[in-house]
Amino acid sequence: QLNAMAHQIQEMFPQVPYHLVLQDLQLTRSVEITTDNILEGRIQVP
């Protein structure tokens, strides 16, 4: 299920590496919260 959620987020934010999306999802278990984390700059994109 997390993989499906990660792919959904990757479609919206292809610039964010998959492993970072998955790592955040493991903590949040939420597409909405992880999306917010990306938008708020809480996930550092190399």
Rank of each mutant, 00 (worst) to 15 (best):
I9Y: 00
D24E: 03
I43G: 02
L39C: 09
M5L: 12
Q15M: 12
V16A: 05
R29I: 06
Q26Y: 14
V45A: 10
T28N: 03
Q44V: 12
V21W: 03
S30K: 04
E32K: 14
N37R: 09
V16H: 04
L22M: 09
A6F: 06
S30I: 02
T34P: 00
Q23T: 08
Q10R: 13
H7D: 10
V31D: 03
L27E: 11
P46C: 11
L2G: 02
L27A: 09
H7F: 13
L2M: 09
T35F: 07
P46F: 12
E40D: 08
M12S: 08
V21Y: 02
P46D: 11
I33V: 12
Q1F: 12
L25C: 05
P46T: 11
T34W: 02
Y18F: 14
M5P: 00
V16E: 00
Q44W: 15
P14T: 05
P17G: 03
A4R: 12
A4T: 09
G41V: 03
L25M: 03
L39M: 09
L39I: 11
D24N: 06
I43Y: 04
I43H: 02
L27S: 10
R29T: 07
P46I: 12
Q8Y: 13
I9G: 01
Q23D: 07
R29V: 06
M12F: 07
I38Y: 03
V31A: 08
S30E: 02
Q8W: 12
I9N: 00
E40A: 15
I33Y: 07
Q23F: 11
H19F: 11
Q26S: 09
N37P: 02
S30P: 01
P46M: 12
Q23R: 08
E11T: 13
H19V: 08
L25S: 00
Y18V: 08
Q1I: 14
Q26D: 07
E40Q: 15
V45N: 10
P46Y: 11
L20E: 05
A4D: 09
R29P: 01
N3A: 15
F13Q: 00
N37T: 02
I38T: 01
M5N: 04
L22V: 08
Q23P: 01
P17T: 04
M5I: 08
V45F: 12
L22I: 11
L22P: 00
I43Q: 00
L2T: 05
Q8E: 10
M12I: 09
I33E: 10
P14M: 06
N37D: 00
D36I: 15
P14L: 04
R42H: 06
Y18E: 05
V16S: 03
I38H: 00
Q8A: 13
A6V: 10
R29H: 13
Q44I: 12
G41N: 07
M12V: 07
R42K: 08
L2N: 03
Q15F: 13
D24R: 02
E40W: 13
M5K: 06
A4I: 12
F13K: 00
S30G: 01
E11F: 12
H19R: 07
L27I: 14
L2Y: 09
Q44S: 12
E32S: 11
D24S: 05
N37V: 02
Q15H: 15
I9D: 00
L25R: 00
Q26V: 12
H19S: 09
T34H: 02
